[in-house]
Design a protein around this nucleic acid. Structure first.
Lengths: 354, 354
DNA sequence: CTGAAAGCGCTAACAG
DNA sequence: CTGTTAGCGCTTTCAG
């Protein structure tokens, strides 16, 4: 085994470019492939001199380990997947950023997959899009904003460690990240109640099946009850997470004579923005004649005027926690289940002050 | 080779769970592994009866091909990487969505990596974070919003096909997606000029090194010159892509007596929002006493009041085009270079009308 | 149309 | 500390 200095065994990429393999490095540095492998993976096991020789060969040849071959042995890719209902929007975007940062911190790459993908295609076809996702990742963080048994089943079947965001998984070996919507929603409702009587407090929700939206509505109602008020049907409405829904809701409510002097809690900031705009168009002064509180505390909230009070949801931390738990489980599959509950809190701004 | 119906050769996941291998399927259906492989990859080469038998075995065993082994042979992962300066924000978020949708359409998964990752860690350490990214992906779309030779070099060395977003790569085999900032910026400037004299037109830019921001500024200046005006220094300012920069710029400009009756083109919508808010606080009516145009046409633009005129940049399409070109090149490495230039256009709203 | 056999590039015992 | 050896699970000639 001579210290040949030119790639002998070199292989090639799919596109035809040749790449050095571990064999080439071994040959070039006059050691066995095992030693090269050790230099890379267990440096303590190899003598400094040999290590140095191997390293220069690696450098010279521009050697990059073939991750497929590596993964075939180690059954690890150092890639984690994250599956979200959608990728776009302030909300998911911040979550994704948090996840990406944490993945980076842990030395993992992030494979992103939005569920929106599959919606666009045939809903009924049992698409196997995700098998690919599942196949290569070491673990999967999956956000279930509403019930989705099909997706859940598919994820479980994949066999990789899973972390669930936003829903509680009662299965062994599955960790959960929960958002404590109740705390913030209660705080917000109490804040409204400090200047508005219970019967004038209103909740404008998102999709009725959405976990977050319904938990927020529930907390709103409980708080009203705690204030000796039995909520009436019209005090809670559900539809979607958009400004135009907020706008139309406000118009209609105003027509019914119920908007002036109301205190409105919205299930997200966009809805709140719609309400705010309707108020402006209807000539209602916020906060004097109408108090509005949003949810999520997206950048929007502090950017618009009047500045929107909003319940802060730490989306970045949610994403980070999901990845953190996931990596923990990947590296220690038998650890006991963990549930991280991230709190929310009201950020008071102009739109709700007395 | 009997049709054993229980996994004989079954292997296990990293977490200890056992999984069926192609061998198990072969045994269970009484064929060779080669045939199983053919059923999956070249169905035409195998008789319908055999295929059926194999398929049921696959189904029964819940067999999923091991993508590492597969990749080791095929040198393909069907994963493409996308590397962005940041993940968060309306802008990148929309780009990412477009990329994800296109990847889905093409049957690829999307591995996301923000450059922000590395900034957080030591800037000087020649981090090898990205080797991982590069190692497993079949190709890489990389956005270069400003010069970054180090990253570029690393990407090129990886050997995988590359598509560049926002910068023109003059290297063989590298495709580019360009945003035609000039068209929209010119259109916007002309629009301002229709109601404002050239010396009252102002440009508020983002970071001075940013490609987009400087191209927009350049087009702004050219248009002024085309209108027989020699721009003065104060007519263009650069700093950052934030509302607070827009706000402070507007305050200062007002103090200098140059804001009233001005026509302002901003390098993005957030800056424009800052200008709008300053105008409001300074008691300037928009659009009567001040015209403002943003850039990017993010959701923000149509959400705020007055509604912001803005130059629409089709970020979703940028992301989609990047992935489309990339996949094309992966599947046909020797095709000639392609440059896709996506156009921009002014969307007139309230903030700039006469 | 199907099987046998040869690896892809790497890691991980097991010896020395 | 280092080399030898035996695969990981799959695809792909090459023969039938």
């Amino acid at each position: 085994v001579a210290g040949a200095s030119t790639p002998a065994n070199s292989s090639r990429h799919a596109n035809g470019k040749k790449v050095a393999s571990i064999q080439d490095v071994a040959a070039a540095s006059g050691v066995s492939t095992a030693t090269v492998s050790r230099v890379l993976n267990s440096p303590t096991l190899v003598s400094p001199e040999t290590a140095q020789r191997v390293k220069s060969a690696i450098e010279k040849l521009g050697y990059k380990p073939n991750l497929f071959a590596k993964g075939l042995m180690t059954r690890r890719s150092r890639v984690v997947g994250i599956m979200l209902p959608d990728i776009h929007g302030e909300f998911y975007s911040e979550l994704l950023r948090g996840a990406d940062e944490e993945a980076q911190r842990q030395g993992y790459q992030l494979l992103v997959s939005s569920e929106a993908r599959r919606k666009s295609s045939d809903k009924h076809a049992p698409s196997n899009d995700h098998e690919l996702t599942f196949g290569i990742v070491d673990g999967l963080a999956i956000m279930l904003a509403e019930p989705n048994p099909a997706l859940w089943k598919q994820a479980r079947q994949s066999g990789v460690p899973i972390t669930v965001i936003d829903a509680e998984a009662n299965e062994p070996g599955v960790d959960s990240i929960l958002i404590d919507n109740a705390v913030g929603a209660t705080e917000a409702t109490r804040h409204l109640l400090s200047s508005t009587s219970p019967e004038l407090c209103l909740f404008v929700g998102g999709p009725s099946g959405n976990f977050d939206s319904s938990t927020r509505a529930e907390a709103f109602l409980s708080t009203l009850r705690a204030h000796k008020h039995t909520p009436m049907d019209h005090q809670v409405a559900h539809k979607e997470y958009t400004a135009s829904w907020g706008y139309s809701w406000a118009e209609r409510t105003h027509k019914n004579g119920r908007l002036r002097h109301a205190g409105v809690l919205c299930a997200n900031d966009e809805i709140a923005l719609g309400v705010l705009q309707a108020a402006q168009d209807l000539g209602l002064n916020v906060p004097r004649e109408l108090k509005v509180i949003g949810f999520d505390d997206t950048r929007l909230a502090s950017l618009i005027r009047p500045k929107l009070s909003s319940v802060r949801v730490p989306m970045g931390e949610v994403g980070a926690a999901a990845i953190r738990l996931l990596v923990q489980r990947i590296e220690n599959p038998d650890a006991k289940n963990e549930i991280v509950k991230l709190s929310t809190r009201l950020v008071e701004r102009e739109s709700s002050c007395k």
